[in-house]
């Protein structure tokens, strides 16, 4: 069971799908001649428990892993900080950082192996390997300059009630929304 989103003459409706609405959705998808159904611009599956429940449970695991790492390492375990400080020649606590990252790769790998859904991996439209190289550079630069990423600011910092992390999260979210908007605009024009 999910929630259906339907746009009828420019107005968006949300609702739980009933048998009839699902049948209509199928008709719309199959019907090549939609002129008699012109009132419907777009009908799409909006939200499905098959995505938000694993999302929520996965989030709980991320929070639990971060909490355990905080208790054991006594450092805020944001991934960019854990990884970035590993690259410092003066790093004196390499062991736990390496073990945390090894666990991260292993835990994700185990889920990839166990579940086809978890192993889903789709390259976003229009992204070449060059885009990923540039994105990596900017993410590395930005996270160390800003002192955190989605986990360090978004989960740990905000979870500890740090005001600067709340601002940082709002800033990187806004920048992310804007970037995707502009990327779509530019790739559509090209």
């Amino acid at each position: 069971m999910g929630i259906l989103e339907a746009r009828v003459k420019g107005v968006t409706y949300f609702g739980f799908p009933c048998e009839e609405s699902l049948r209509l959705l199928e008709l719309l998808r199959e019907n090549k001649d939609c002129r008699n159904l012109a009132a419907f611009d777009i009908v799409q599956q909006f939200m499905d428990t098959s995505t938000w429940l694993p999302g929520f449970l996965g989030g709980c695991l991320i929070g639990g892993g971060s909490l355990l790492a905080l208790i054991v390492s006594r450092k805020v375990p944001g991934v960019s900080g854990v990884f970035g400080r590993l690259l410092l020649p003066t790093c004196i606590d390499r062991t736990w950082r390496l073990l945390f990252l090894a666990g991260l790769v292993g835990g994700a790998g185990l889920l990839f192996f166990l579940s086809d859904a978890a192993a889903t991996y789709r390259i976003p439209a229009g992204r070449s390997l060059f885009v990923f190289a540039i994105a990596g550079l900017i993410v590395g630069f930005g996270t160390r300059l800003g002192g955190g990423c989605t986990s360090g600011h978004g989960v740990c910092g905000m979870g500890m009630g740090a005001k600067d992390s709340i601002i940082a999260t709002m800033v990187f979210m806004a920048a992310g929304f804007l970037t995707v908007f502009l990327f779509n605009l530019l790739t559509a024009a090209a």
């Binding site: 449970l57 996965g58 989030g59 709980c60 695991l61 991320i62 929070g63 639990g64 892993g65 971060s66 355990l68 790492a69 054991v72 375990p77 991934v79 073990l99 945390f100 990252l101 090894a102 666990g103 991260l104 790769v105 292993g106 835990g107 994700a108 790998g109 185990l110 889920l111 986990s151």
Partner: peptide, 8 residues
Amino acid sequence: AGALFGAG
């Protein structure tokens, strides 16, 4: 902790 994070 890392494995929980990665699995999540």
